[in-house]
Nucleic acid binder design. Sequence first.
DNA 1: GCGGATCAC
DNA 2: TATGGTGATCCGC
Length: 725
Amino acid sequence: MDSTKEKNDSCKDDLLLRMGLNDNKAGMEGLDKEKINKIIMEATKGSRFYENELKKEKQVNQRIENMIQQKAQITSQQLRKAQLQVDRCAMELEQSRDLNNTIVHIDMDAFYAAVEMRDNPELKDKPIAVGSSSMLSTSNYRARRFGVRAAMPGFIAKKLCPQLTIVPPNFDKYRAVSREVKEILADYDPNFMAMSLDEAYLNITAHLQERQNWPEDKRKYFIKTGNSLENGKPEKELNKPSEHERSVSPLLFEDSPPDLQPPGNTSQVNNEEQNNPQTIQNSVVFGTSAEEVVKEIRFRIEQKTTLTASAGIAPNTMLAKVCSDKNKPNGQYQILPNRQAVMDFIKDLPIRKVSGIGKVTEKMLKALGIITCTELYQQRALLSLLFSETSWRYFLQISMGLGSTHLTRDGERKSMSVERTFSEMSTAEEQYSLCQELCSELARDLQKEGLKGRTVTIKLKNVNFEVKTRASTVSSVVSTAEEIFALAKELLRTEIDADSPHPLRLRLMGVRLSSFLSEEEVNKKENVHHSFHLCEDRDYETHQKNAEIDSEDCAELVETIGNPSEAESIDALSNEHSKEECSSLPSTSFDIEHCHQNSSCAVALESEDAGSLRRQELPQPHLYEEITDQVLICPVCNLEQKTSDLTQFNVHVDICLNKGIIQELKKDKVNPVNQFKESTRNTGNSGRVQKAVTKTKRSGLMTKYSASKKIKPDNPRNTLDIFFK
DNA sequence: GCGGATCAC
DNA sequence: TATGGTGATCCGC
């Protein structure tokens, strides 16, 4: 999209600014700035959204106030010292200044809107925007005159410009066009870095080198005539030779800067091709300079897609990005690779233009009297005392016109998420259900990339636009919808319970997975974990009928992987089944010897006899209703419990860990409580972990952790897995 | 590791 | 009637 940062500096109202107002060139059509502000204000005032914006603004003001206070306490002594330190740093930066790379930033003009206009001639002469009544992605230049901009809700845009046509986005189409553009870009830098569908950085240093020896032939491109361009200019116009070399794209940008030389224009052809008049008709040759290369790129993009792009050329990415904005749309700008040119360019550059300086940072720095890069440099010592190290170093680099000189290949992704906005949702049932849906979607996306992670985060936004995130990290990896939901559900439950009896009034919910592990790590993890299965499922009805069943019968070492002999052994793990609450059942305890971290042990609390019994006697929900009427019996421990949900009942499991094993776990940075919480997640197909784990008692060398789980009687897989590592 | 914030697109 | 979704990073706990 076009930069949303092209906001004016003389802002009276930050909120209006944030909503995308811009200087409005007084033209025949459109609205002036004042009118735009007024209309937006009328539409937004009093809304929950607006109230929240005010709240956030107050917080920022508070931050600024704190900063000013801090500033007041700085002594000249401190400042002098800081100055020395910062200047030493600046000197080092200066010495590392690298002007040897040629970085190009390419930015498609009003991309989505331009694609829609290209493909639908009816839209060509109208103000349009792509998006929906609730949010616009981009607008064309005609609509911008009315103050209609990206990130503005469509219904407000309509008030600004009633004639506005809002086109729903066609992302598949944009992706296809983007691919065409990227094919061209790859010719100049196979390692170019795409920032989005419509933006990319290229390092053309190597291409330039190579190009110096290229014959004209390799820099020659034939001009496609308008005949093949479905929605181009009228044919007669296109066929005029004088028009040939001009833009072949539809007239998207009537306010295109006049000084701009369209790619492949006559003068350029003359420069390069004076002795070859034949080529003037239908082909164009580009030179060997960076500027020519970028003209060639833009020319090829336009030829191929009928869309225009803007570009910036500079010795680093930070400058290139700013440059591409300079002659937008359909223009380019270069900062020559010498220090003076960079400094001249930087001198009066408003810091807000720099990628990374957003609305809040701008406001904070403005409070210190800093608006331009020069001022940013002048205040470097002060900034080093008021901001974090990373921040002031970043500021210093910007103020010196420095930036990345090489394009780092984007590394592996660090998180994946889904989130959705909806009309108010207040019932827990709906919320859980939506949460589950989001988890499924996320799991599907994760599977596409084969990712597994350890941290699940939920995001909630209430109807007042207040956002909350809650995260839970486990030591194993999760990836399936069920695994993610088990954790997300608990996080959601905690939030619902916290506000109970008031419902959460939500307008957005999201689920994210992070702390990804590489494939090898995942394998290691999955093989390594000690898995203690406590399978209360298959025998619970037996237990219920016969609480006297010998625990030895249902204790079974199911699985042992790895080599126990080379084990650094875990002293013991004792499992008791709710000794206190369920005194009717003898405690179950295991001593696992030689159980190495690299091995996997699974202990099943299971009766083989019960396995054969269970099918015939599966209790039906209605049975419980009859038997208990609001009171259910835990089938394992016989504990009576009240519940309103008669299709489910709780099973309690307590685990006692001795000091040795806890130390082992801590050594591996495993929090037993978290681990237990994770372990008790649902592994059955409809069971529910009812309660988070609580550390209940510390007695002697043992620490007891308890969990309980809701189990549906008809669930064939009601297992409770507890595993460490 | 968590949660709030900021930023880009 | 109505103000997005995804990913990254940083800071202060």
